[in-house]
Design a protein around this nucleic acid. Structure first.
Lengths: 244, 244
DNA sequence: CGGCACGTTGATCAATGTCAAGCAGTGTGG
DNA sequence: CCACACTGCTTGACATTGATCAACGTGCCG
């Protein structure tokens, strides 16, 4: 258990001023003095895969700022269906909606790939919101972006088949994590298990397996455990029907 | 063509101060003077079914406030799949996202049931946003609500079958339009065609037909054209697995 | 070694899409 | 007024997709 160590505040963590995500995050509007306020108030800690930042149904305690790692927003319904609605990676803020509406969290925020996350207490954020009006604007822009993405995901879920949805996900990972090898193929390491891939595209793990085999046979994509090689990216985009 | 008449400004329309939706709409925060500014600037007109407020790809000209009628937000993808992402009815604001991000509209706003809609030019809204900071807050709350809804729709689209999605839609209409007849049954008139129902739940019209027949046979719901009778609302909620 | 998590495979079945046809209601032009 | 086209809706037959159930391999860890 690393926990007792890593829970204690800010040891060895960067200050917000140094954070690579400062210009793109929801905090970009803050003044230097406000930023140092966040700096003092934030709690930074490392998380292992499987840990939850908060759970569906919890009251909002504050908001989370992802420094590294990968977060999945999971929703479980009454029938026990568990799906991942969205991913959050480095530089994004998680949990702002429940905080802003003072409602319960509607989803569980679960760590999929281990990383470091800062927590900022709701009291602090509330003060900042009063102080610097630009912050609300940033949350608004963030919310609109999330909305745009979720809306597109929704549209795809209604119109595309499993294979296309899967390939779309692959391309999202490729944009974030992929690179070209010496022979010009796209290569990447998937950050999550088959399990979670299934939960992301609303399928059963078995079906994901079959889609993979299918693609493999078609020569479009190669899989070896979590390693993926894209032989022909154009062809992949083709079969998706390029979207957002 | 009613158009030339109804396009001319504000004839016979209420002022915003009288609008039933004022307390619940995004405009609830405005001062009396700001409200009268909106009042003077707004263009009100009636729309017939099938007309579009704006089209996917258009630049944002301003935002729309629905007084009556039913608006559907439609997205058409490259393959020609046409789906309805969301509905907007009286008292809601449409088109605020593209306005706030200065991007193109991502969806077409299409009139499904005829009604009256106010248009407020982007210049006016921009001025209001500067004047009264509460307005931004209202847009933020609105965006969060839309997000919550779309997220739930997304989750349902990934987990529930056609029948459950259809019944869920029926219950949404029932909440808005339904009433109880003398024998305690829920009754309503569907505001849209089978066509659009299919587009809303991401199905083919034929499949919707079959679901209806299926429910009819099961004795759960009765359909006659657009008239719907719910014999046992509890049972309906049961088969959905109550959600948002 | 034994147990467990992850992933794959096969067989089978249910749900839904696709294609073709038909029917009722409605408006249109002769 | 009728014939006709047209739209919205339904139905049937069939193909396809994806879920479900059961089994098995592999690697890891106690």
């Amino acid at each position: 258990m690393v926990r007792s160590d890593s829970t204690t505040a800010n040891k060895g963590t960067h200050s917000c001023a140094d954070c690579f995500a400062r210009q793109t995050s929801d905090w970009r509007s803050l003044s230097a003095s406000d930023l140092s306020l966040v700096d003092k108030a934030k709690r930074t800690r490392t998380y292992e895969a499987g840990e939850a930042l908060f759970n569906q149904g919890d009251a909002a305690q504050g908001i989370y700022c992802v420094q590294s790692g990968l977060i999945g927003l999971r929703r479980v319904d009454e029938q026990g269906n568990s799906i991942l609605l969205r991913l959050s990676s480095a530089g994004t803020t998680v949990g702002y909606r429940a905080f802003l509406t003072k409602e319960e969290h509607r989803n569980t925020a679960e760590v999929l790939s281990p990383g470091t996350i800062c927590f900022i207490d709701k009291g602090v954020v509330a003060r900042l919101l009063e102080d610097s009006p630009g912050l609300g604007e940033c949350f608004l822009q963030h919310c609109i972006e999330d909305m745009n993405q979720t809306e597109s995901d929704y549209a795809r879920s209604l119109t595309l088949g499993l294979k296309a949805r899967f390939l779309h996900l692959i391309m999202i990972f490729y944009e974030r994590l992929g690179f070209e090898d010496e022979s010009g193929n796209g290569v990447m390491e998937l950050p999550i298990q088959r399990n979670e891939i299934a939960a992301l595209i609303g399928a059963q793990p078995e079906s994901v397996s079959r889609v993979i085999r299918n693609l493999q046979n078609g020569g479009l994509v190669e899989f070896d455990k979590r390693r993926v090689v894209l032989r022909d990216i154009e062809a992949v985009l083709q079969t998706i029907g390029v979207q957002d």
